[in-house]
């Protein structure tokens, strides 16, 4: 996903001379190196100075440019939070804050490098849009949107590297602000976003093996959330499952519950999230997710897929 983002950004920069990338000391691998070599005046490395990274992006946008602030998620959103809020959101500037390796992807780096509550944090700010693509193909679509839109700031939550593609046979095209059915069924609907889509797809296979007809939905736009789309999913399926790599507060799960209550949905609703805890554990990304309870076996057992 990281390489796809860089490649798409590079292409956008070739088409639009106002596309800038302001990075905070993150490795310019792959196409990001190409960007920096071909457009050195539009590739700005601020070093380890994230507050300035956001402020500079705001200044560029105030002069009509289309900047991307790019570094590891915790440093692009948490460290310069007030700059994100005041410089980008209060002024409503079309700057994309890229959160690389969001969630607990940096599984051996400890809690300082985890963004478990980023959607809650970013989503609480007026004017902020949030996109979290589930695979490289969605990352391409999302990056293109970010490079051309003039609505306001975006938090683009990305995985890291090596994610497979899930959306090549998706039912719906990618459209900002709309749920996207990867597959459409009638019994169970799995709502998810981001790289944990991989577990959702496996869970769908298990449910299908049990004879269920399963929808899998990429809720790639977390803000503004497609409330009508969620409501429809809640009313058209007997069982809705939310899986997200995010704290229990402020993400897709509580919002889905709220919509279910507001719309008097009758379906069964199960939600699986990270815990509201700093878990001192190391290992693979999967190991960290399992430590939080986001383990496919546990989820399967709970939803009756085993």
């Amino acid at each position: 996903m990281r390489n796809t983002f860089a490649e798409t950004l590079y292409k956008s920069a070739t088409e639009n001379p106002d596309v800038y990338v302001v990075v905070a000391d993150i490795s310019p691998a792959g196409s990001m190196a190409k960007f920096s070599q071909e457009f050195p005046e539009r590739f700005i490395n601020v070093g380890v100075a994230e507050q300035s990274m956001i402020g500079i992006c705001a200044g560029l946008a105030l002069k009509g440019c289309q900047p991307f602030a790019y570094t590891i998620a915790t440093f692009s959103l948490y460290r310069p939070f007030e700059m994100v809020r005041d410089d980008l959101c209060y002024q409503n500037l079309p700057v994309t804050v890229v959160g690389m390796g969001a969630g607990v992807i940096y599984s051996t780096l400890g809690g300082t490098h985890h963004t478990q509550e980023d959607i809650a944090v970013a989503g609480a700010i007026p004017n902020m849009q949030i996109i979290s693509p589930c695979d490289p193909a969605e990352c391409t679509e999302a990056t293109r949107y970010c490079a051309t839109q003039k609505i306001g700031p975006i938090y683009l939550r990305l995985g890291k590297a090596g994610e497979p593609t899930f959306t090549d046979k998706a039912v719906d095209p990618w459209q900002f602000g709309k749920l996207r059915y990867i597959k459409r069924g009638t019994d169970v609907c799995i709502l998810t976003y981001g790289v944990i889509m991989q577990k959702a797809m496996k869970l769908a296979e298990q449910l299908e093996a049990k004879g269920k007809s399963v929808s899998v939905v990429s809720c790639h736009t977390l803000k503004p959330l497609d409330r009508n789309g969620i409501e429809e999913a809640l009313h058209k399926h007997k069982h809705v499952i939310v899986i997200e790599e995010h704290a229990p507060q402020g993400g897709l799960a509580p919002q889905t519950k709220q919509i279910a209550w507001d719309s008097q949905a009758k379906c069964r609703l199960d939600t699986f999230t990270l815990q509201d805890a700093f878990i001192h554990n190391y290992g693979s990304h999967d190991d960290l997710l399992a430590a939080h309870g986001l383990d496919l076996g546990l989820i399967s057992a709970k939803v009756g897929a085993t």
């Binding site: 507050q51 402020g55 002069k63 900047p67 005041d86």
Partner: peptide
């Protein structure tokens, strides 16, 4: 008014971004 300020420590970074844009766009 070219930028919202009020919280201290924001204006200089925004000014740097503006200065870079002026140079980059040759304005």
């Amino acid at each position: 008014i070219e930028a919202s300020t009020g919280s201290l420590g924001h204006g200089l970074s925004m000014a740097v971004g503006m200065a870079l844009a002026e140079k980059g766009r040759k304005t």
